[in-house]
Write a protein that binds this DNA or RNA. Structure first.
Lengths: 204, 204
DNA sequence: GTCTATATGGCGATAGAC
DNA sequence: GTCTATCGCCATATAGAC
């Protein structure tokens, strides 16, 4: 029973902390606000995670593991590259739209502690080399044109992530503050991103 | 003489504040640190800019006007689209590499005050409509394939900005922390971004 | 494990002399 | 216009009862 209580509280804290940290960042977040959102008090927060820093690190790790997801699925599936890319982009945009503050949060806090970031990356199980190898194979088979595979990966990520991170700017500049119009636009991008990339790399 | 003094101090403050705010953001920045970097004391800071908020707004406005630069040059020049794009990407990457914290700073603080952001955008003289019209003209002339011009603009910006904003991630993931290798990579991207886009949009 | 109360330090901002 | 000194608040963190 005590165990259960503990697990419940810890989970509540983690959820609350994630909400607050993602919106406000490490510096902007307040332990009081996290406590409120978790329905407990500050003292208990410090009982579970001794410092704000430790709590933040736990959240960053959790969140970061989300932002570079099924990237490896793209590698191990044996679908044709067009399908792989389509599925990845679509599910990735879905994920980002459900967590629209996530990209900015990660970009924002990325500079804070590079060593910690490096450690997390190892832990995600993502192996860039495998992704690059997959791209290279496609190039050597003559299905896509030759280019630096790192460029290709960065392009896929940039085309997907940037429009979500720059949401406020885009909503104002392109859609006169119409948030639904922005959403529709991103929804359509699920397809147009893939088209844009394939037009660029496919050898007909 | 007093005037000169004032101008000097104000300029020193603005420079210092820009450095600190860009690296630490609104929440992370400290008035004390800005004062130190400007070689003055806190009180004087408040004498020039009454509050931290006002100082920040001044800096954000200044910095934001940098990040969406010569975008309009791309429109008014009558070079062929290939050249326009090449020149824009190259000069834009140059700008970002000289101010590598700038993209994250803008993305980070973009959510803080959307109305203020909207006001600044008006002030930059950037008219998305003109850019879109230019793209549409190229499409109707059959030089580039038909697509949503907003997609095209976002793609250009995302491909250019994302790799700079995600620098720590990329340096670790792709270059085993070799910062020079990262720089070389970005340097090469000046050309590969344009190639990537042109391959996608040009009608041969 | 969870709470109330409090210590401790830091930060934005102001008062007031020069 | 520039400085020193200080106020007042708020945030992290701890002490100690239950």
């Amino acid at each position: 029973m005590t165990e259960t209580k503990k697990d419940n509280t810890e989970e509540k804290i983690l959820n609350a902390a994630q909400n607050v940290f993602i919106k406000k960042g490490m510096d902007g977040a307040r332990m009081q606000e996290i406590a409120d959102e978790a329905g407990i008090n500050k003292a208990l927060l410090h009982y579970y995670f001794r410092t704000k820093e430790k709590l933040f690190d736990a959240i960053f790790k959790k969140v970061f593991s989300k932002i570079l997801p099924n990237l490896m699925d793209m590698v191990y599936s044996d679908l044709p590259i067009e399908k792989k890319l389509g599925i990845f982009v679509e599910s990735y945009i879905d994920l980002l739209m459900k967590n629209p503050f996530l990209p900015t949060f990660v970009l924002k806090e990325m500079n804070r502690n590079p060593e910690f970031l490096a450690k997390i990356i190892k832990g995600t199980g993502i192996q860039p080399d495998k992704i690059f190898a997959m791209f290279k194979k496609e190039m050597e088979a003559g299905r896509i044109r030759k280019m630096d595979p790192r460029d290709l990966l960065v392009n896929i990520l940039g085309l997907s992530i940037f429009p979500i991170a720059a949401r406020p700017l885009m909503t104002i500049m392109f859609f006169e503050n119409d948030k639904e119009a922005y959403k529709t636009f991103i929804e359509r991008r699920k397809k147009t991103i893939t088209e844009f990339i394939l037009h660029s790399i496919l050898i007909k």
